[in-house]
Simulated assay, not measured.
Amino acid sequence: MNQPIKVAIDAMGGDFAPESPVKGALMAAQERPGDIVIVLIGQEDAIRAQLPEEVPANIQIVHADEVIGMAEHPTKAMQQKTRSSIALGYHLLKEGKVDVFCGAGNTGAMYVGALFSIKAIEGIMRPALISHVPMVNGNVGVILDVGANADCKPEVLAQFAQLGNLYCKYVLEHEQPRVALLSIGEEEQKGNIAVQAAHKILKEAEHLHFVGNIEGRDIFLDKADVIVCDGFIGNIVLKMAESVYEIMNKRNLHDAFFDRMNYEAIGGSPILGVNGNVVIGHGISSPLAIRNMILLAEKFAQAELNSKIKNALLQSI
């Protein structure tokens, strides 16, 4: 019998913590009682105040004295608040006491914490944040980077393609993911200098199914499974998609495709290229978003993507 996946959650992270993280954890724990154990990290009294009298058997609490605020400087906060819920989450992950760590708090602190604690996989130039992309025909693709790396060299973009390809294969179970660069035209010579140079690298990458450039209007049309761009562009695309859903929802317009642009449906963005499983959620995460982040984290951990990334890097040397 397989051991349940241990998912650690920063219970103090997010605009509505600890209420949203705890309620979302309860939803996930009740849905998957034999499959996951959820470890809530944070100020114990505040966490227990959100829990029912009878706590599900697959929920645990780890007390953390300190909290890193949403507006705090990530590097300074991680150095100064060594007893914070984020710092303890990474400690548990590094020690192998949990399989995956999730948080909807300070995004910078979550990313910096990963680099300081579990560190990047050897050979990874820049770990990337990845997000799911709904397609009009019901399929799901990915886009990366979505905010961790605003400026990228061509070699970094090419490596993002490799990371996204592996995620699509082993987490989303696409047999042969189609990889594309997001650009201002389909032609090979279109785009800025970095995109043009990355195109040349990817065109020669025999282990990838590279389909060339796609434009912004193609993102949701299932022309590629892996969409590669720098974090500046990726974050704009992500926030624009979220805003489309919000506008439609406020106008009481509902559609199955646009409903999948709701950040709650996606849950979070995994970090690819670090020595551990990490998922970062939206700061405004609701209980439903936290629940979906936990379920995504479970699937992410089960895929054992880190070992597959390491093997792929060895084969490319």
Rank of each mutant, 00 (worst) to 15 (best):
N106E: 10
P270Y: 13
I233T: 14
M78F: 04
V195I: 14
G42Y: 06
K200H: 11
I193Q: 15
Q43E: 15
M110D: 05
D225T: 00
H254G: 06
E175W: 06
I9R: 03
K76M: 13
G69Q: 12
I59S: 05
D65H: 10
V37H: 09
I130F: 07
M125D: 14
L208A: 06
C229G: 02
A265Y: 13
Q79V: 10
V133I: 15
V140K: 13
L221P: 00
G276P: 03
S84E: 05
V279C: 11
S286F: 06
E54K: 08
P270T: 05
G267I: 01
A46N: 14
Q80M: 14
R48D: 05
D255P: 02
T107L: 10
Y245S: 05
E19P: 00
M240Q: 10
A29V: 03
A158G: 05
E187C: 07
N275A: 13
E246F: 10
M261H: 02
E304R: 12
M27W: 05
C168N: 12
I219G: 08
G191A: 11
A114V: 06
N292T: 04
Q79I: 07
D99K: 08
V39S: 09
D230A: 01
H254I: 00
N306G: 11
L288W: 04
L92C: 03
L295G: 03
A224F: 08
L221F: 12
H207F: 13
A180W: 07
Y111K: 06
Q3I: 07
S85Q: 10
L296T: 03
G267T: 02
H174K: 15
A64Q: 03
D225P: 01
S131H: 06
N252H: 13
A87H: 10
I124K: 02
S286Q: 13
T82A: 11
V279G: 07
S307L: 14
N139C: 11
A194N: 07
S131N: 12
L295A: 08
A297S: 15
G234I: 03
K203A: 11
P74F: 12
K200R: 14
L272C: 09
N58E: 04
E246C: 03
H209R: 12
S243A: 15
K97Y: 11
K169D: 10
N262E: 05
P18D: 11
Q315L: 15
V112N: 08
A161H: 06
N2V: 06
P177Q: 11
G103R: 04
A71Q: 14
H174C: 09
M248E: 09
P52Y: 13
L51E: 08
I317L: 14
K153C: 04
I36K: 03
D255C: 12
A312K: 10
A312L: 10
R83P: 00
P127T: 06
T75Y: 14
G24L: 04
R291N: 13
E215P: 02
T82R: 15
V244G: 06
M240H: 08
V37Y: 07
H132W: 12
N262Y: 05
A180I: 01
P18T: 03
A197F: 00
I294T: 08
R48M: 07
I290D: 01
N249H: 15
P18I: 02
A25R: 00
L88R: 09
